[in-house]
């Protein structure tokens, strides 16, 4: 199995200002974050705190105003983007896991996951092989040929996670991955994320306000008014029932 790219993610002094002059809004006012490979941290904050803006900056979906970002030892932003093709940046360095699985409905489970390596130029057979590996690791490979509509919610979420991991990105951004789930399933998702982080040495940032899983993090970043504060978490992840 290939090694994950070392480095995790390092964010320094990230700022984001919307608008100009008197009507300008500073959504982020100097955010610092550091997540090591293999770590799973939580990002918690009320709505309006800049949580979503931070996620969008981390995900290279919007451009910050100032600061630095390093992902997996690559400087991606230091006042301006260091990588021209943001889509390639997203594809190669960042994995996404969303609240809803957002699987492509017309691709089967394997191809949903294999699509990412294929987009990076990996030959189809190799891409599918990697996909199946991950699906296997997530214990959902028995559904490899099914269409997303045939899967249960939990299975879909696991496939989504597999997709997030398949390109072995150094960072995974998970946005409210457990919101629609009950506590049993929510903890199962967190367990998977931890296992994957350990296995592939991926840095995982979980944006959440789900009380059920906050206790599972060892470190938590609180964000308020555009600034983050680091905090130690309980790190209590009960074993499966």
């Amino acid at each position: 199995m290939a090694e994950a790219v070392p480095g995790g993610i390092v964010v320094e002094g990230l700022r984001k200002r919307y608008g100009h002059g008197d009507t300008a809004v500073d959504a982020l006012r100097g955010v610092d974050m550091r997540v090591a490979p293999g770590e799973v941290v939580g990002l918690v904050g009320p709505s309006g705190s800049g949580k979503t803006t931070l996620l969008k900056c981390l995900g290279a979906v919007i451009e910050p105003t100032a600061g630095r970002m390093t992902i997996g030892d690559r400087l991606t932003y230091d006042g301006r983007w260091k990588i021209r093709d943001l889509r390639a940046l997203r594809r190669d360095l960042i994995g996404f896991v969303f609240q809803a699985p957002y699987l492509i409905p017309f691709l089967d489970v394997t191809d949903n996951v294999a699509l990412l390596p294929m987009l990076a130029g990996v030959p189809n057979a190799e891409a599918r092989r990697r996909a199946l590996e991950l699906l296997d690791a997530l214990q959902v490979s028995h559904r490899a040929k099914a269409m997303p509509s045939q899967l249960s919610g939990g299975e879909q979420q696991r496939v989504a996670i597999a997709r997030g991991l398949v390109n072995r990105p150094p960072v995974i951004l998970a946005d409210e991955p457990t919101a629609p789930l009950d506590s049993e399933r929510a903890l199962a998702v967190i367990r998977i994320l931890n296992a994957m982080a350990a296995q592939f040495q991926t840095a995982i940032i979980v944006v959440t306000h789900d009380e059920k899983i906050i206790p599972t993090f060892r470190r938590i970043y609180h964000i308020r008014d555009g600034v983050t504060h680091e905090e130690a978490g309980e790190g209590r992840l009960p074993p499966p029932a």
Partner: peptide, 16 residues
């Protein structure tokens, strides 16, 4: 639209 947004997000080229 939603599939297109996801595709774009996960890194599909505009061309594709």
């Amino acid at each position: 639209v939603r599939e297109i947004a996801v595709l774009k997000l996960i890194g599909t080229r505009d061309r594709t």
